[in-house]
Write a protein that binds this DNA or RNA. Structure first.
Length: 173
DNA sequence: ACGATGATGAAC
DNA sequence: TTCATCATCGTA
């Protein structure tokens, strides 16, 4: 059973959406072929009070996509080299998103976007088959005890927020 | 352990 | 317009 996730799934609180993305499939259509990757690691970025969230300083040109309603991509460049892939969550005008940090067989968000040919041209696009990049539920059941929560990576600058357990991983079998 | 590499936002 | 900063990776 395959079901494409639609805006109803994404238009909820980011902390509800993030762990549910584990075990779902990121699907990339490229040159008429579909490639699916099982999501194993995500991080939540939640609104203006989260100092690790780009939008905590306010609405800017870069973060504009984060303020859209849930279900669109937010992609941006980091360290001058790598594009980070995020899916926006929640209602319009509330900035929150989930960073897709790892999928099976590919480690690291920088390699992920490079290997499956994602770049900033997806920024602001909808997560749907028409855009060539979306997420599917393939019927896998993931329960709370399959999931581990830890602090986020690479956000030491965020003070207190750096300690929040907003990173979710599938435990190894 | 560290350099590559460039957009971003804030300060001057 | 200049500067420090950065949600990373590959080579050492």
């Amino acid at each position: 059973m395959k079901r494409v996730l639609t805006s109803g799934f994404y238009k909820r609180h980011v902390l509800e959406v993030a762990p549910e993305l584990l075990g779902k499939y990121l699907v990339r259509k490229y040159r008429r072929k579909e490639h699916a990757y099982r999501i194993t690691e995500v991080e939540a970025y939640d609104g203006p009070d989260d100092k690790a969230c780009h939008a905590h300083k306010g609405r800017t040109k870069r973060t504009e996509a984060m303020f859209a309603e849930g279900g669109i991509w937010y992609v941006y460049l980091v360290y001058g080299m790598y594009d980070m892939l995020n899916i926006v969550t929640g209602e319009k005008d509330y900035p929150a998103a989930v960073l897709i940090r790892g999928v099976e067989e590919i480690s690291g968000p920088g390699r992920l976007s490079r290997d499956i040919r994602i770049s900033r041209h997806f920024n602001g696009k909808k997560a749907a088959p028409e855009s060539g990049l979306w997420i599917e539920d393939r019927g896998e059941k993931v329960t709370k005890k399959d999931i581990q929560a830890t602090p986020r990576i690479g956000v030491a600058y965020a003070g207190e927020c750096a300690k929040w357990k907003y990173r979710f991983l599938l435990k190894a079998n």
